[in-house]
Amino acid sequence: MNRRQDMNIDNRMTRRASLKLMGAGAAVMGAPALHAQAFPNRPIRIIVPSGPGGGADTFARLMSIAAARELGQSLVIENVPGAGGIVGADRVVRAPKDGYTVLWGLNPIFTMIPALGTSMPFAPADLQPVCTLISNAYVWVARADFPANNAKELIALAKASPGKFSYASTGNGSAAHLGGALLEQEAGISMLHVPFKGTGIAEVMGGQVDLKMEPLGSAVSLIQGGKLKALAVTSRQVLAPLPNVRPLLEVVPGYEVEGWHSVWVAAGTPPAIVETLRKGFTAAIATPDMRGRVEQTGSNVYLLGAAETTALAAKELDVWKKLIVAKKIVAE
C-alpha cells in the first residue's frame, strides 16, 4: 500500500471519528430540547359531550382555567353533543393516544347508556379514567307557569292525568331520562319522555316540554331568574343554593340521583401522561378558589383515582340495569 492510499484511509477514519463525535455532541446538546418537549407542550382539548350552558359545560370551563395554571398549557373547550354523550366520547376514542384530547366524562356515558344496551361505536374498554373531580345533585325543574309548585303536587297531577305531562332529556339512557323513569317507577306515575340533541332546557323554558331533571349547577341561575320553577332536588338534604326546595325523597322514599364529573382519555395513553393529567386536574380543583366555586353551585369536590372511578361506574351500572329491566326500557 502506497503513502497516498495510507493518507486516504487516515482521512476517512478521521472524518468518521469527527462525525461520531458531532453526533454524540448533538445528542447531549439535544437533551434539554427533548426535555422541553415533555407533556404538555401545546394546548389540550377538553371534549364536553353536551351543548354549551349545561352543567358539564359550566364545570369544564371552570376547570379549564384552573387546570391550565397547573399544567402550564391552555385547555380549550370543545362542545360535542349527541346521543347522550356518546358522540363526544367517540371523538376522544378516535383521537391520538397522546393526552392532548381528554373527555369531560359524565356518568351516564359509563353507566346508564351501557345499562340500556345502546349500540355504541366503541367499547367501554376504549376509554380509561384519569380521575373523578365533582359530584352533584340534580333538581327537578318545570316551565315557569307549570301548575305544580313541589314534588307532592307534581305527583298528584301526574296521577290524575297519566301520560299528560312530558319531561326532557339529552337522549335515551341519559341521566334525565333514567331519572324520570325512576320517578315514574317509584311514584307510580306515567309521563312522556322527550329526548333532545341538546340539553332540552331551552324547550322547558319555552313551554314545549313540561319538566326536566337538570344538574343543579346549570339550573340555579335560571330558577333564581324566574325562567324555571324548582320542584324538588334529588339529594338527601336541602341544598344551600335552593334553601326552600325540598328533597324528592321526602315524598318518594329512596329516590336519590347523583351525577359525577370525571376526566377520561383514550385507552393506551402512556401512564406518565395520564399521571400528569391527574396531578394537574386534582391540584386545580383542590385550590380554595375552585373548591369554593364548586360548592357555590351546591355541588361537591369528589376526588377519586382511576381505580376508584372504575369501581364506582361498575356499581352504578348494576343499579341502572335493574331499573331498565323493571321498566322494560329499550334503546332506540
Rank of each mutant, 00 (worst) to 15 (best):
F165V: 02
R236M: 15
N107I: 10
G54A: 14
E275W: 14
S119E: 11
P114N: 06
T297I: 01
Q128A: 14
D289S: 04
I324L: 14
D126F: 07
F110W: 06
P253S: 01
M13N: 10
L75D: 03
S119T: 09
S218I: 01
E186A: 12
V330C: 06
G298N: 00
A17P: 01
S119I: 12
S166C: 06
A230N: 00
P243V: 01
S18W: 14
I9E: 00
A326H: 01
E316R: 14
P43E: 05
R143A: 03
A313E: 11
E332W: 04
V238T: 14
A272Q: 15
V294I: 14
T199C: 06
A284D: 05
S161K: 11
V92H: 06
Y167C: 05
R143L: 00
P147V: 01
L106S: 08
R42H: 13
K197Q: 15
H35E: 13
P271T: 06
G188T: 00
L312W: 06
S135K: 07
I113R: 07
S74F: 07
A267S: 09
A56T: 13
L222F: 08
K97M: 09
I113E: 07
K279N: 14
A38T: 11
W264I: 02
T269W: 14
R291H: 13
L62A: 09
K315D: 15
A202Q: 12
P96L: 04
A168R: 04
L183Q: 01
T309V: 02
R94Q: 09
F122K: 05
P288E: 05
L62Q: 12
A137C: 08
Y138W: 12
V28M: 11
L154K: 03
V265W: 06
A66Y: 08
V204N: 01
I47R: 04
A151F: 12
E332I: 15
I109Y: 04
V245F: 00
R61M: 07
K164C: 07
E78S: 15
L19S: 08
P162F: 02
G188N: 02
A230I: 00
M205I: 11
S50A: 15
V245K: 00
M7W: 15
K97I: 11
T14A: 09
V87E: 09
Q73A: 15
V245Y: 01
T309A: 13
G82V: 05
P114A: 11
